[in-house]
Write a protein that binds this DNA or RNA. Structure first.
Length: 452
DNA sequence: TCTGGGGTCCTAGGACCC
DNA sequence: TCTGGGGTCCTAGGACCC
């Protein structure tokens, strides 16, 4: 917590709906819902007119249709338009300070102390941010924003919410506890429906109630991290800095089908399409991923993930798709899938990915000594054995069938799943091993006797 | 026709290693 | 008969956020 109110949290009001109303005057003053408008859609944003009828973000669109009157507009999101306006706003924030943390398309923190030139008195920041909100409105064609300024991120965010829409709250340093104590614990970051419900069972409704719980009790109920977090936040203790850059840790795509899909061919083509999207973004980021995860949701909404970590990070869509296919093959889809998704994570640089391959080498195959070369960026063409590429099916005369997990510099690692090797056994061979050859047919997993 | 899509972080158990 | 203790990696699930 800082001595002065120098952290700004800015939030655009009912952003998606406001952009639609700005761009289409006939929508102004009317209830507008932006989100999934299909049978299984949910509301992304409800305009304030729609909120008056009880429509809310994350509500099933079918429910919003029931609540809102005839004449309500239900619209698909136009992300391009939102991004364009978002950029205009973020540029205005960067005019105030170089330290801007964009949390989402419609939300950001700004460190007003960073430039060292702003008047950080309560009156000073109030004038500064009031002017900012005016400039946002004129630069975006009338979008309104709400802002909170406080001594910490937590209080700034709570402040921006207090007088929405078009509100500005400066929390005077020293009054933080007064502000939060009467509020619901739900205002604290990390307190969602589940945590709020558990707290309620202990008679905790407000932040003041939460202050009465001891740290050992909170830790025993919520675990080490969450317990300490709750204890701190209830006392307005928040030292998080405004972070300019946050690295991406996973990339994923998923889709909920209008009707549950039991058809493997259809699921496979959906999977391929999603891998193309994920792989495209992975390629843009110029990084390599080691872990591939699929996600499935059944008709009863039970949701599962299956993941596989490769020995060898990859940037290739074919490898991601092949891995995802193998994971999906293990899922019972006979009742149909409601949702299918795929993601990649465990990003590494190319140099590290070569190192990872070296580390899993089996001792019975002498590794080529390369004292420092493995730490250097590898040349453009990765495998030195062109016939073996990660993700391809192979057979070994003695060990049965498997697929290539890593290939390079005269060696190939094969992952077998058979009675002799056990599931997931990885063996490494010289790539000219005569007992190693392409598998046929490629769908060896379907054949129970394949490695027997 | 209840319940999207894209993320982050945490926990817990098992394998494995020293 | 009784069976350590960390640490790390991987997997799966859950809570949460916008």
């Amino acid at each position: 917590m800082r001595a002065r109110a120098s952290i700004l949290h800015l939030d655009l009001d009912a952003f998606f709906a406001a952009v639609e109303q700005r761009d289409k005057p006939s929508l102004r003053g009317r209830p507008v819902i932006v989100g999934g408008i299909g049978t299984r859609g949910v509301v992304s944003t409800a305009s304030y007119e729609a909120r008056a009828f009880g429509a809310r973000s994350a509500m099933p669109t079918s429910e919003a249709r029931r609540r809102c009157p005839p004449g309500t507009a239900f619209l698909h999101p136009r992300f391009q338009a939102y991004r364009a306006s978002s950029r205009v706003v973020m540029d205005l924030l960067h005019d105030l300070s170089p330290v801007v943390e964009q949390v989402s398309v419609d939300e950001a923190y700004v460190d007003l102390a960073a430039p060292g030139t702003h008047d950080l008195s309560v009156a000073g920041v109030r004038a500064l941010v009031a002017d900012l909100i005016d400039r946002i409105a004129s630069a975006t064609g009338g979008l309104t924003a709400s802002a909170g300024v406080a001594s910490s991120k937590m209080l700034a965010k709570i402040g921006s919410d207090l007088e929405k829409p078009h509100g500005l709250v400066v929390v005077e340093p020293g009054r933080e506890l007064q502000v939060i104590e009467p509020l619901s614990v739900r205002v604290l970051g990390g307190v969602g429906p589940a945590t709020a419900e558990r707290l309620k069972s202990f008679g905790v409704i407000t932040v003041a109630d939460l202050q009465r719980m001891t740290l050992p009790d909170l830790v025993s109920i919520f675990g080490e991290s969450h317990g300490h977090g709750l204890h701190r936040l209830a006392r307005a203790q928040d030292d998080r800095e405004v972070e300019v850059e946050r690295e991406t840790k996973s990339i994923s795509a998923e889709e909920t089908f209008d009707v549950d899909v039991p058809d493997r061919a259809r699921l496979d083509s959906e999977l391929a399409a999603m891998v193309t999207r994920v792989g495209g973004r992975l390629g843009q980021s110029a990084s390599f991923a080691r872990t591939v995860t699929i996600k499935v949701r059944h008709h009863d909404f039970t949701t599962h993930t299956r993941s596989a970590t490769l020995t060898h990070a990859t940037g290739e869509q074919a490898v991601v798709l092949d891995t995802a296919r193998r994971l999906l093959a293990e899922v019972d889809v006979s009742d149909g899938l409601r949702l299918l998704g795929v993601g990649v994570s465990g990003f590494t640089s190319h140099a590290q990915d070569q190192l990872a391959f070296d580390e899993v080498d089996e001792p019975d195959v002498p590794a080529t000594p390369e004292p420092s070369a493995s730490r250097e960026p590898a040349p453009e063409s990765r495998p030195s054995a062109p016939s073996w590429r990660t993700g391809h099916d192979v057979r070994h005369d003695e060990l049965g069938a498997g697929w290539v997990w890593g290939a390079g510099r005269g060696r190939v690692s094969v992952r077998f799943e058979g009675p002799r090797t056990g599931p997931g056994a990885v063996r490494t061979f010289a790539s000219d091993d005569p007992a190693l050859h392409p598998a046929d047919p490629p769908d060896w997993r379907e054949r129970p006797d394949v490695s027997g």
